[in-house]
Design a protein around this nucleic acid. Sequence first.
DNA 1: TCTGGGGTCCTAGGACCC
DNA 2: TCTGGGGTCCTAGGACCC
Length: 420
Amino acid sequence: MFALVDCNNFYASCERVFNPKVKNKPVVVLSNNDGCIIARSAEAKKLGIEMGGPAFKIEPLLQKHGVAVFSSNYALYGDLSERVMTTLAEFAPAIEVYSIDEAFLGLHGMRLDAIPDYAAEVRQRVVQWTGIPVSLGIAHTKTLAKAANRIAKKKFSDKGICFLDNETAVSAALSDFDISDIWGIGRRYSVFLKAKGVKTALQLRNIDDSWIQRHLSIVGLKMVHELRGIPCYTLEERPPAKQNICNARSFGHAQGEFEPISEAVATFAAACAAKLRKQTSSANIVSVFLETNRFKEDEAQYFPYKTLTFPEATNATNEIIKMALDGLKMIYRKNYRYKKAGVMVGGIVPASEVQMDLFSKTDHSKQKALMEAMDKVNAVLGRDKVRIASQGFDREWRLRQERLSPCYTTRWDDLLTIRL
DNA sequence: TCTGGGGTCCTAGGACCC
DNA sequence: TCTGGGGTCCTAGGACCC
């Protein structure tokens, strides 16, 4: 058995933990740069606020109902996520942290009749220890556990638990489960399947394998098998190293000049390098890209992209920045209003397995010591406290974050004060 | 004025090998 | 008129996830 534990309206719930003023009020959280709605409390959903829509278009609605609006505060969400995951880890012999707000628990060996009480206890403990409400879906495969979790949220929101323990329960649940809500069916497949008359998970489950594989590929076939209760996916307790790492941001204001864009690109490249070192990997290639504002039809559009290869794989900030800036110089053109830039590193290999360049003049041990020193200082004093000069200081391109809540749990200055 | 930021996997087709 | 049979690797594009 797998249990999928999913935090309810996670970012919105995080904003509530240390801010009782918004406890029973509608809350929404915006994407980076205060762009789109990416999380909504139950009250906000009831007002008809859609997921993913641009916030400026519904500004009057937000005002009218006194919706509490927050910029994304990933320092806060990341820290609360860790607390939730640590709490969950105490409950299960095996846990896979699937995303910032979800984890699969392996319940192998547990007696079926003990599961309902167990699930209730998990739920109670997490909310008591972290302030974050969660829902549980429990079933024989991950895909069914996902579906059960959705049912728990939609149909049994008071209890927050859905346990599909036998075939009768599974087929009853799938008979009115919309295919577009299945884990693995996205927009395109959903449209395609509905056009063929397949509307429920139960219908999909009964289609023959060859048709599924032909139209939905091997991935779709595995998903259908999982709906039938045949496990195709196991618990992944240790996440594999990333094969690509990307750091990209929209600018608070459109940028035209080379200087601020190059500082942004250097900063993104530095972030990629730090992530590489964190998973003790090195990258063979780096890509840099620019984007103009695609929503402005009257402005000239330009989406250039350049990939360069290192003579030997690296995770050194200075080397990755240099190569990214070389790429930027090749694609940058004057007279465009750029809205976004990004850096991606790929061809990732373990740092211990880098193919050396016979003619390299780099002093690798010195470079490694330098990066370790930099990471140590920044771990204590804050990100980019020690940085490469090309990253700049004024961050003219920085994000818009006008409604940021305090970092209650990660900054001394932001600690709550309680008056007695 | 204002529209996010990360990732993975699979398939088809072309280039190339013997 | 007829033109083998077996592979690998890479890339672009399309699907999906949070």
